[in-house]
């Protein structure tokens, strides 16, 4: 069994529990053990880099140092925002002499820069697809709008995705799972991210364009790989619909939930009951054939 370092981040312990559940479910199918970093801390998110540039490197650096101590050279970071902060911290430590000396003093730990954060999409491509492609028995007979948002494709120096303006990584995964990935215009637009609480009105406006474009082009669901994108598209739907003439009910699902369904895992074991916008109609549309995990 392959073992890989796992940094769930705060969201996967709270608002994005279904992401954690479904990720672990597909990892079991791929025979990968996700080993949670010991006593990890929050990456600092937007708050740290908006207010204090040192904190913005030091907080994620402590997690990188913990992963090194545990002997991992790769850390799976499923949250795109956490990934961005951890990868940026590693980048700063490697490229900036100032941080190379300062950070170990701040975190009181040695850091060599040998533990590399990887996104959920890279994880799926590198560790999961080969192992599960023969087990994707429940072909997903539906249309999907693959939504990347910001931090999986940008900034360039942290992203592993090619074709930043029109990435196709998730589309290929959807295709393998038997689904149809639609062409649409908002796949790399921003959901409003960290303004969710303070300027919910802005999040409503930005996400309205996203859900409206996806459903008007015939998608049955929006596929995401970031808990910030998901919570804005899902939990903020009433605010979103204030900007639209009809009640938009297109569900937002995680790429890990999509793979879970294709593997025939029961929807509740993938956390579909935790969504605010129900995915029931969409799931009923799929031919079901569930297996025990």
């Amino acid at each position: 069994m392959t073992k890989i370092g796992y940094f769930p981040g705060c969201s996967l312990n709270g608002t994005a529990k279904e992401y954690d559940l479904s990720l672990k479910a597909i990892a079991r199918f791929a025979d990968v053990e996700l080993v949670e970093l010991n006593d990890w801390n929050c990456c600092g998110a937007t708050a740290a880099h908006s207010l204090n540039s040192t904190l913005a490197v030091a907080l994620p650096a402590r997690n990188l140092a913990i992963a090194e101590r545990m002997g991992f050279d790769e850390i799976l970071v499923p949250c795109a925002a956490c990934y961005s902060r951890l990868a940026q911290a590693l980048y700063e430590i490697k490229s900036d002499e100032k941080y190379r000396t300062k950070i170990p003093q701040l975190i009181e730990m040695e850091i060599k820069g040998t533990a590399n954060p990887i996104t959920v999409l890279d994880f799926i491509n590198k560790y999961v697809l080969d192992k599960i492609k023969d087990k994707l028995t429940n072909k997903l007979n539906a249309k999907f709008a693959c939504y990347y948002g910001c931090l999986l494709t940008r900034p360039e120096h942290l992203s592993t995705i090619e074709r930043r303006e029109d990435p196709l990584v998730m589309e290929q995964i959807v295709k393998l799972a038997g689904g149809i990935a639609i062409d649409w215009a908002f796949k790399v637009e921003c959901c409003g991210a960290g303004l969710s609480v303070v300027r919910t009105d802005i999040v409503g406006k930005l996400c309205a364009k996203i859900v409206d474009d996806a459903s008007s082009r015939g998608a049955d669901a929006i596929v995401v790989a970031c808990p910030m994108c998901h919570s804005n598209l899902d939990m903020r739907r009433s605010e979103i619909n204030k900007n639209l003439s009809t009640d938009n009910k297109i569900p937002a699902i995680y790429i890990t939930q999509l793979l879970g369904l294709a593997l025939g895992i029961e929807p509740n074991k993938l956390g579909f009951d935790k969504h605010f916008v129900p995915a029931d109609n969409f799931i009923q549309k799929l031919q079901k054939q569930t297996v025990e995990v």
Partner: peptide, 9 residues
């Protein structure tokens, strides 16, 4: 500014 990085990219 949401730090979405669209401008930079």
């Amino acid at each position: 500014c949401l730090t979405c990085d669209t401008c930079h990219s």
